[in-house]
Write a protein that binds this DNA or RNA. Structure first.
Lengths: 342, 342
DNA sequence: ATCTCTTCCTTATTCGTATAAGTAGAGTTT
DNA sequence: AAACTCTACTTATACGAATAAGGAAGAGAT
């Protein structure tokens, strides 16, 4: 940050005080500053190339016009789990919406021993959007600080914060039910970490619901959970091919995992959907790319991003107002990865 | 931003002046503040839950510890072209490296009529990393402001800024040469916009070089350029299948496009690599997912992100120092999308 | 001629932090 | 005992912008 043009310089150039500059800048000039002065100020601003310093403004206003986005990391202090295109789609929508509303995005993982609160307070963030990870450790501190928070796909909401998500239990049900309708009974469940009250746990419950409804016994052996990623999907498919030859279908809770599953079966000499059917989740572009294209449970990720920002702005405007809980609908998109074996 | 704990509160609590607090905070206490006082200050900090306000620090230091990342948009004021996983990988590495060095990331597209400079000055960004888009409009203003800039994959470098990229001409050569070595002579080139002095132009030159070397005539009809994306790849493949049946290979300048190309050929009833071979670029995970897996020109994207930050920090530390130009090496990764027809 | 009211600006202060410069008091030197 | 030197702080100011409160100049009223 080199020497910059300040309102002081502009004031000098225009031959007025800094207060006048400020009034002109903030359009509070209308009643009591002459058009000539306004013109002179604007000319000076133009001439010197003045640009407001938002750090100074943030200090004065106690408002930074910055929204923080917290994205899951593989582990604290590590990189983002960004290989899942879900995040790119989401972030793209968040950035666009925030920008058109006059906000910018600060994205950050957390370093070890650092909380989101600290980041928020550090930068005076006006709000934080948290994706998938619930800050259990210091939730009470959050409530105290009253920093507007939007929880995305977090399942511990006590209506103290805005939240947005999908009905994951229903999503899990939709996927499993779809497979059951197509004659499958030995259905493996492949997901990322099944955390207490997390997205994957809900989807697992939904899967369970569908089995129950169809009178299919639940088999713990068919539940696989690891890293949300292509590799784990592939490994798991190999495992299934080897150790569970009776499995005819897999529900993977992310398209990126489903793609890995297809790859794994292929490596094991099994074809999808010839030998085994696969259903994914999300409907990111991978679902189209993969071969066969993926039948998957679709959610509107861009909409999720857009609404997350709307909720954040809402919480900024009215920090103590009622908290909303938005549910993005889910639907099965049929493509080519499922075969009817009924 | 609600009422926050400031050093003033801490000072009161500890019974010392704010200056003392500041000295303790910045470890400038060692010589002249007693251990007892330091302990008392730290206790007060702990008790009150004090967190420094970086806006105030930014104002005082003229340093924000914020690095801006500018990502191409489909068009100004629109969303990011984030569907290409290249950006996710890159950003993930940038964020991680920046964070471990004490910086955070402000990511932003530009609204219509707004320049990167303005964003940078607004937020007092210490540096900007610009991806793929060269700010021709106001490059001189940049040079004046002396905001450290790192150009990533920008090809107009006049050594006024640090830059990092790959030898794209060589990359284009590698891809085309690889196909030629496998007996192909009618090779289509499919890319995003071929901009003057841009990445795709260089890759096209490299493709041309390889044809020349092999004595294969250059055919303008086989050059296709549109949006970097899956859809355009698919459309183009259909076009090629219909109108250029003699084409036996395609070089797509991004894996995501190559995946689309494979899909397009498949829709046209042509198999890859059976009927036509495909080479991609980047080696993102799509290359593995796609079926057949993609032979592609690999670059280390994470490394690119890491080095981009290093260069930014370098420019921050020594704004007028010599500018470096880092080239990330390229290599062909052989997978299953190319058939030898020699 | 004085008072009041506008109009159009300026002065002074604040936001939270960092730091150069100042100082009180104890100890040391001569 | 005056002068000096440390030690361990404090005071005062600056960073850039916003704004409440103040004030000068002129118009109009009495």
């Amino acid at each position: 940050m080199s020497r910059r043009v300040t309102i002081r310089d502009v004031a000098k150039e225009a031959g007025v005080s800094t207060a006048t500059i400020s009034y002109v800048l903030n359009n509070k000039a209308s009643e009591s500053i002459t058009p000539e002065t306004i013109a002179r100020v604007n000319a000076a601003i133009e001439k010197l190339g003045y640009v407001p310093n938002l750090s100074a403004r943030a200090l004065r206003y106690r408002k930074s016009n910055l929204i923080g986005v917290v994205i899951p990391q593989t582990e604290p202090g590590k990189e983002f789990m960004f290989s899942n295109p879900f995040y790119g789609d989401f972030l793209s929508a968040v950035e666009y919406t925030a920008r058109t509303r006059g906000y910018r995005l600060l994205i950050s993982g957390t370093s070890v021993g650092q909380s989101y609160i600290e980041i928020a307070q550090n930068h005076g963030l006006d709000a934080i959007i948290i994706l998938g990870i619930y800050p259990t450790d210091d939730i009470n501190a959050y409530k105290e600080t009253k920093i507007p928070l939007v929880l995305v796909d977090c399942y511990r909401n006590d209506h103290f914060f805005h939240s947005i998500g999908t009905n994951d239990r229903h999503g899990g049900y939709l996927a499993a039910h779809y497979l059951i309708r197509h004659g499958h009974r030995r259905i493996a469940f492949v997901s990322g970490a099944v955390e207490e009250v997390g997205v994957n746990q809900k989807r697992l419950f939904g899967y369970h619901d569908a089995l129950d409804e169809a009178g299919i016994p639940y088999d713990r052996e068919l539940i696989f959970s690891g890293n949300v990623g292509y590799e784990y999907g592939a490994e798991t498919a190999l495992d299934i091919a080897r150790n569970h030859p009776d499995v005819t279908a897999v529900f993977a809770t992310a398209d990126i995992m489903a793609a890995g599953v297809i790859k794994g079966f292929s490596d094991a000499g099994l074809s999808v959907p010839g030998n085994v059917s696969v259903v994914g989740f999300d409907d990111v572009f991978i679902a189209n790319i993969s071969s066969p294209s993926l039948t998957t449970v679709r959610q509107n990720i861009k909409e999720k991003g857009r609404v997350a920002v709307e909720l954040a702005l809402d919480a900024i405007d009215d920090p103590s107002g009622p908290k909303r809980e938005v549910i993005i609908p889910l639907e099965v998109v049929e493509r080519d990865s499922v075969r009817d074996i009924g």
